[in-house]
């Protein structure tokens, strides 16, 4: 074969375990997939005849839809395995569910769960490729990939750029996965948020700022806002949503500073208007938020294309 390629993995569980070559492969592969979107036929037959199952124990229409479109564009058959989110679903019953999916000869399982480590647990018990669509506070690898891909679109030479992540670092799997991928790509990462939501035992590469002034003096190229879960206020992590907005939110005044400095804006969505971001800021011309959504489909296609079910048992080569 003249094609150069990369040995596939069975699962995509986190960013930590990917090496730089794999990350670069996924980012590079996402490019041609994004180009597909402008064709009249947006579909390719790469995963024809394969079954992709989405298993969302936490509701997330956006992420699920993004995976579904990605799978559809690869010609896979996609089914949502309806998980009752109202009933308490324990780990034990997940393995039962996995057995069921195994019996259905599912090739790919896209899973989101409120508890960290569940996708890894599932991956150990199935031949199907498992794609982590977010587990607890642990990881959200496809979000990290799409963030890195989006950053590369505005800064093809991403190494040495500075990204400021703002918000709830403690409870954010996005902050974890995205900061790790950026760090691996040589991007400098700092964080800003209330002391109660920025753990001291975070990754050592993340410097923490305590106010916007200092953070902006650091000259970030991108400000990455995290979604603020409204229940954090009830848990007393900060006094009120309006105080959060005033101290840590992207107010209209701060958007103006971003505009003057030419700083790009990212957010994993969905946004809480008036909390982490002012209403008007949604119209900011250097906002990459919609681009992130589009890129999400491309990197998920790249991930589905790269992974190979049952690889671990069979070995990569045949």
């Amino acid at each position: 074969m003249t094609e150069e390629g990369l040995k596939p993995r069975k699962d995509l569980l986190d960013i930590e375990s990917l090496d730089l070559e794999e990350i670069e492969f996924l980012l590079k592969t996402a490019g041609p997939f994004k180009e597909l979107f402008s064709r009249s036929v947006k579909k390719v037959p790469a995963l024809r005849g394969k079954t992709v199952l989405t298993l969302f124990y936490e509701p997330s229409t956006r992420t699920r839809t993004s995976f579904e479109i990605a799978a559809n564009r690869l010609s896979a058959d996609v089914t949502n395995f309806g998980v009752s989110t109202s009933s308490v679903v324990k780990g034990e019953s997940i393995l039962d569910t996995v057995d069921t999916l195994q019996a259905m000869r599912t090739d790919y399982i896209v899973i989101r769960h409120g508890d960290s480590g569940i996708p890894g647990l599932v991956a150990k018990h199935t031949r199907a490729s498992v794609l982590n669509a977010g587990d607890g506070y642990h990881a959200h690898p496809t979000q990290a990939l799409l963030d890195a891909f989006t950053l590369r679109e505005v800064y093809p030479e991403s190494a040495g750029k500075r990204v400021l992540i703002v918000g709830d670092i403690l409870h954010s799997r996005v902050a974890r996965s995205t900061s790790i991928i950026l760090n691996k790509l040589g991007v400098e990462v700092s964080v800003l948020g209330p002391g109660s939501l920025v753990p001291p035992a975070r990754h050592t590469f993340m410097h923490a700022f305590t106010n916007w002034g200092d953070a902006l003096d650091w000259q970030p190229h991108v400000v990455y806002l995290l979604r603020v879960q409204l229940e954090r206020q009830q848990e007393q992590f900060f006094p009120s949503l309006s105080e959060y907005h005033g101290v840590y939110g992207l107010t209209n005044r701060r958007v103006e500073i971003l505009r003057q400095k030419g700083i790009y804006l990212m957010h994993p969505g969905p946004v809480n208007r008036g909390v982490e971001i002012a209403d008007d800021a949604m119209k900011y011309e250097r906002s990459l938020i919609n681009q992130q959504v589009e890129n999400g489909i491309a990197v998920r296609m790249a991930a589905l294309y790269w992974l190979r079910p049952g690889t671990d048992e069979r070995g990569g080569d045949s």
Binding site: E4, K7, F25, T29, A46
Partner: peptide
């Protein structure tokens, strides 16, 4: 690459070109 009929049997996943 995306139209190959042997993707399942390849030792490695091909790099996509434009």
């Amino acid at each position: 690459s995306l139209y190959r009929d042997d993707l399942d049997n390849l030792g490695s996943t091909p790099v996509l070109r434009h």
